[in-house]
Structure formats: structure tokens, C-alpha cells
Nucleic acid binder design. Structure first.
Lengths: 158, 158
DNA sequence: GACGACATGTAACATCATATCGTCGAGCTG
DNA sequence: CAGCTCGACGATATGATGTTACATGTCGTC
């Protein structure tokens, strides 16, 4: 199946990722508040996409006081709009974007066994999907490409 | 962008579609009850993907008594499992499958303006997505390919 | 210190989905 | 026919997800 090789930017992790996220937000004229930092920290602390309420719990614990879910939603929405976080539509869940500085139509491989999601950027596949939409007279704004199945680890185990 | 031409089975409508849906269910050893018929009718009555609760309202009106949401969910789940209905993940909504007799990884073009969804079957695109997952060591079971954007009509209007 | 802009809090509500257990009727079997 | 089982559906509750409206806080600036 001919598709461009995914380009090989590094997927950032840890502090470097936080710095990148902050920079991305600031570049958009948004603030990097303690609250937002806490939400982003919470996101990076999960090993799989987290629901807004799971994030709420973690942030509440981290800050030592109860945070309302809608505050978290606001921030998650901002993050998604700013490409700092991503939303897995088929799971109603969020994760930190490992490279907020570049824009992709990303693809999620979501394991139905362990719940983990692998985020890959294959611009070739995305372009194919977009082109198909265009052929149908449709103006593609945001492709949602998620593959439900089993990850390499879980295929062996289950 | 090379992709197979979508094959040209007819997308069924109206009574023919109901018959096809019924046949599909029966072939799986499932019953075609009055309740299920009402749910399917409701689905075909919408011009866009409908939420389970919207279906509930329509079915309740049609039957002249209040139907509980969980009954509708049961039936919708059965329909989806039987390929008689499809679920738009990015909208938490359901629609009747225009050709329940054949299995596809279908693609939705979801208009964010008017809410309508166009259902296309491009096995080439789906195969590309599946292949990409496979390359990553992932066992693809159910690709979710939905393109959010504007339909041809709404692009002109808005 | 008054003001504006924006972030966050509070509360209520709306929507989406599942769990559990009870009832009913269709079809089987003795 | 009596009694049984089984699948479909009902009733109720609850949990999960997402939104709205408005109040309050915080901070930079004049």
C-alpha cells in the first residue's frame, strides 16, 4: 500500500514536551497558567487516553482541592484547539500531543484490550482520506481516523 | 491519489431497505419484532444521524407509549452488530445502513453545518488505513473513518 | 484605585450509556 | 394442557459525558 513514510520528528516526552506545549500555547497568544499546567501534567501522566473526568480527579488531587469538570473541559477544549492535546473520538478521551509544534491529521490505533492508543502521523493516508472526501464534493476540515483493534502486545497475550 | 473506485451497488431506500434489513437480521437468527421495525423505521425517517434519544422519542410517538432509552440502545446495538445500522462515533449518533447485505469499512463525511452525513464505501481507502495499522504491528478490527467538514451544499451557503 | 480582559468557580442541567432485575409471551416438552 | 425455558422488552436507577449561565478572582494598565 503506497503511502509516504511517516516523517521522523521525535515524539517529545517529559519536560521537553511540557515546554513544547507551553510554547505552542503562548505562541497562540494563550496563557500558560498553573491550572493549565496541572491539566497537561495530568494528561502526560496517563499511559492511555483519559476521560475528562479522570483528568479532573488527577488534577483535583494534584492541586489539593476539588476542581469542577467544566473547568477541565474548557482547558481540554483549548488544548485540542491549540493542538497541544488530541481527542480520541471513539473513546471520548484525551491525550497529550507528543509534538504540538506540527500539525497533522493524526491516526490513532486504539487497543480494545489494554485501552492504550498509539498515535501515528501518516500524511499519505490522511491525504488519501481527504482526497476521497474532496472527490465527493465535501470540504474536509478534520479527518477522524481511528482504528479499533488489538495492539501488538495484546494480540500475543489474549 | 490512487484508490479503487467505489463499487456501485445501489443504496437501498424505503420499503426495499426495510426488507433488506429484516432479511439481514433474520439470516443471523435474530427476530424482526414490531419494536425493532419501529426503531428501523425511525432511523430511516431521519435525514441525518440520530441520537439514541432522538430515536427513542420518535419510536415512542409512533407506538403511542413511552419507550425506555435502554430498550432503544439494545436494539441499536443489535442493529450495529448486525450491520443493519451504523454508528457515527464522532457524533454519538446512528443511521440506517443503506446496504446491510454487504460488509464495508465505511467512511462518513459529516457536515458540521447541516449535520447530515454521507456514507461512502471506498474499500481502497479503508485498505490503506488497515495496511498502515498492520505495518505498525496492530491488528485492525474496526477502522473508524469519519471526515468532519462541510458538505457541498453548505460550502456554498455558509 | 478603576477598569477591561480573561481565567476560573459554582451550580444546575442536558445528553449519552449501562446495570439490574422483573414481566411477558412464544415455543418446546412431558 | 401444565410446566418449562428463553429471548424480548419494561422499569428503575445510576453512572458517564458534556454544556450553559452567571459569579468571582486575578492581573496588567491607565
Amino acid at each position: 500500500m503506497a503511502s509516504m513514510r511517516p516523517h521522523d520528528h521525535r515524539h517529545r516526552t517529559g519536560d521537553a514536551l511540557v515546554v513544547a506545549a507551553q510554547a505552542t500555547l503562548v505562541k497562540r497568544g494563550e496563557q500558560w497558567t498553573a491550572m493549565r499546567a496541572a491539566v497537561f501534567d495530568a494528561l502526560t501522566g496517563f499511559d492511555q487516553p483519559a476521560s475528562a473526568y479522570a483528568v479532573t480527579d488527577v488534577v483535583s488531587t494534584a492541586l489539593g482541592r476539588r476542581i469542577a469538570a467544566n473547568s477541565i473541559y474548557r482547558i481540554l477544549d483549548l488544548f485540542v484547539a491549540s493542538n497541544v492535546a488530541l481527542r480520541v473520538e471513539s473513546r471520548n478521551a484525551y491525550l497529550a500531543n507528543a509534538h504540538p509544534e506540527c500539525q497533522h491529521d493524526c491516526i490513532f490505533l486504539v487497543c480494545d484490550v489494554c485501552g492504550r492508543a498509539t498515535h501515528i502521523d501518516d500524511d499519505g493516508v490522511a491525504a488519501t482520506v481527504r482526497a476521497t472526501a474532496t472527490q465527493a464534493g465535501f470540504k474536509a476540515l478534520r479527518p477522524v481516523i481511528e482504528v479499533r483493534g488489538k495492539c501488538a502486545t495484546c494480540v500475543r497475550i489474549v
